[in-house]
Amino acid sequence: MTNPNRTRLWRSEGASGLTLISPPLIYAVLMLAAPLATMAVYSVFTDGYLTIEPILTAQNYIDTWTDVLYRSVMLRSLLVSVFVTAATVILAYPVAYFVSFNVDPSKKSMWLFLITIPFWTSYLIRVFMWKVILGYNGVINSGLKALHIIDQPLGWLNYNVGAMVLTLAHAYAPFAILPIYVALEKIDRSLMEAGQDLGETRWTTFLRVTLPLSMPGVIAAVLIVFIPTIGDYVTPNLIGGGKIPMIANAIEKLMLKADNKPLGSAIAISAMLIVGLVSVLFLFLNRRFMRGQR
């Protein structure tokens, strides 16, 4: 069947769509895709003195994955991100639950607004404040000393992975609350009444009905916290005192200070692969949860 009218209409719709999307798309291709491709090419080249030799090699990747120094940086980044993600999501869930279920509907946006405000204030200053709070002569130590609870400052408060986890968990808190909140909002309230009607207690209703239904939100929260955390630069720099580098710090060091762009690129590409792998894994989990609900 020939249908000139239909093809014309369709073509014009497809064409309008493509025309409309082309400015942002061309921008993303020029500023994101092309640079990432360049980096990918660099990562298989050989580093020369002040130059990059276009000689193909896998050495950069071998170094990235076998050198103890880089491997420990990668592992530390992963570990910190896992801790931060777990802490953030577990701490955020009750807050999201409270706002969704226990707050009067007319006051919900006010609570959400209160939760988001700290997120929009200078990230640098928030991180720095934790350094000030946790420092050797910082707010907590001096406060406790002034109250005569301790004589000597607590050394374990600062310059360690725990302080970094605390700082990052604070920085990404709203990222975790909002998706969980959205998932909880979508749950039909009568399902919970049905749960109780069928003989479950409030707690078992939560475990058997609410929690499973909110899993897509939890998974989104995990992704949204995990991804920026693993690439964080400021926190290891300020809170870790530069002595506990994560991936971003390693990339910076190699690309600029050591001027080994191929190796730096290989680490960056590897980091992207790790992030991509984790994302795909969680998106897959999410799809399974979504399917279970349809």
Binding site: T38, L223, G231, A268, A271, S279
Partner: peptide, 15 residues
Amino acid sequence: MVLPEMIMSMSMLVV
């Protein structure tokens, strides 16, 4: 939205 800024800034810097 989901890429570490360090990676984006370094790749742009390289170019």
